[in-house]
Every structure is written in structure tokens, then in C-alpha cells.
């Protein structure tokens, strides 16, 4: 479902030595969860953002579900991303002005999908958050907030979930919980999981690993 070949990205900077970052070629099959390993500064986040269409690669092949992402126009890319890709970041980045429910509904609203309250309930129930549906984001605990962030990433049933260091700030117990949760929601929504991390604890969890 994901095909990457000859992909590279160059940072636009005033410094003269702006060397293009070359990314490894790889392919993922449906539900072939994969770990993207690399030390800090190795370009994991950049790679993840290029795959997710947050950055545009100037050359190479980037294909998701038979769609060539770097050939899409900006608005088509935004739309495609909203519909098919879910992001989980190291920080939750929930919108504090909104309730849990509205944070989730924002995703279909912005990607132009149908806003389905039953789907919100379903996702929150799966994550054990049904009682927090109308709570303000500021009332949540750290762990609850992260689960809401995961719920937001999967509300549109994305084919690809991109997670950037989802566990590196967590202790061992919570790290295990978080990764288990990601696996279970990915399984439930038929999504493929691509996790970028330097967290060595995740090494044994994934079969497929790519080193940067």
C-alpha cells in the first residue's frame, strides 16, 4: 500500500551546504506495521512528514494506495491526508478550546468527511473514554489525553497511521500500554502503522524495521 523509492528532501536554508536528505526505499503491504528507527537528528520526523504530505519531496516516488502523493495539488494533498492518514505526535496537541467530542469531530469536519457522532462514541468506547465525551480537554489526565489524540488519529478510519515518537516520554508500563493500544486500533480500523522512534523498547514489538 505504501511504495517509496529514490525519495529525498532538501531543507531550504540560507546556509550554502544544504545537502538533500536521502530516504531509504521500501514498500509496505496492507497492515504490515513497521518501525522507523534512527537516532535524534537522523531525519525520522522529516521522513514521516514527507510520507504524510506535510512536506513535499522534490523528487522520488511516493505512492499510497496507488495515489502518487507528490503529484497532487496542494489542496488535493491536504484533502487526501485528512481522509487517509492519521497522525499521532509525541505531544497530544489537543485543541483546548474544544471538548473531547468536538476535538474528534474536527477531523471529519476539516477533511470534508461526514461527521458521525456514533463513530465518535464507538472510538471513545474502544479506548475506554466514553465517560469523557463531553469533558474539556484540560480536565483530562496525561494518559487520557494521549488516548484522545489516538482516537482523533483514527476517527476517519485512515489507511495509514503515522506516529512520531509516541512512547519516548512514557515509562515502561505506559509505553507498553500505548503501543498495545496503537496495535489494537490499527487492527480494528484496518490501518497500517508506521512508527518513527529512537525508543529501543519498541524494537521487539515490530517485525518490520527500517533503520535510518
Amino acid at each position: 500500500m505504501l511504495k517509496i523509492a529514490n525519495l529525498s528532501y532538501t531543507y531550504q536554508s540560507k546556509a550554502q551546504n544544504s545537502v538533500p536528505i536521502r530516504f531509504p526505499d521500501f514498500q509496505l503491504a496492507d497492515r504490515e506495521h513497521c518501525l522507523l528507527l534512527g537516532n535524534s537528528g537522523s531525519g525520522k520526523t522529516t521522513f514521516l512528514h514527507v510520507i504524510g504530505g506535510l512536506l513535499r519531496a522534490e523528487q522520488g516516488w511516493l505512492e499510497l494506495n496507488e495515489v502518487q502523493l507528490n503529484q497532487l495539488s496542494q489542496s488535493a494533498l491536504d484533502h487526501y491526508r485528512g481522509k487517509h492518514i492519521g497522525f499521532v505526535f509525541q505531544k497530544n496537541h489537543l485543541i483546548k478550546a474544544l471538548t473531547v467530542k468536538d476535538n474528534l469531530l474536527l477531523s471529519p469536519f476539516l477533511s470534508g468527511e461526514k461527521q458521525n457522532e456514533e463513530r465518535v462514541e464507538e472510538v471513545l468506547t474502544d479506548l475506554g473514554l466514553e465517560s469523557k465525551m463531553n469533558a474539556r480537554v484540560t480536565e483530562l489526565s496525561q494518559g487520557q489525553a494521549q488516548r484522545v489524540a489516538i482516537a482523533r488519529a483514527i476517527i476517519n478510519k485512515p489507511t495509514l497511521i503515522l506516529a512520531d515518537e509516541p512512547t519516548s516520554a512514557l515509562d515502561d508500563l505506559n509505553c507498553k500500554r500505548a503501543i498495545d493500544l496503537l496495535f489494537s486500533v490499527a487492527a480494528k480500523n484496518n490501518s497500517t502503522l508506521l512508527v518513527a522512534t529512537h525508543d529501543q523498547r519498541l524494537k521487539d514489538v515490530f517485525k518490520r524495521k527500517i533503520q535510518l
Binding site: 504524510g52 506535510l54 496542494q74 489542496s75 491536504d78 484533502h79 491526508r81 485528512g82 481522509k83 497522525f87 505531544k91 496537541h93 485543541i95 478550546a97 474536527l106 477531523s107 476539516l110 477533511s111 470534508g112 482523533r152
Partner: peptide, 16 residues
């Protein structure tokens, strides 16, 4: 700024 960036990641165009 995080709200705005997150909204973009969820599919909002710059125009939105």
C-alpha cells in the same frame, strides 16, 4: 500555532 498545524494535518487547507 499547534492548533493550526494540527488542523492542517487533519486536512484543512491553508485557505481554510
Amino acid at each position: 500555532k499547534y492548533d493550526l498545524a494540527i488542523m492542517r494535518s487533519m486536512g484543512a487547507s491553508p485557505r481554510k
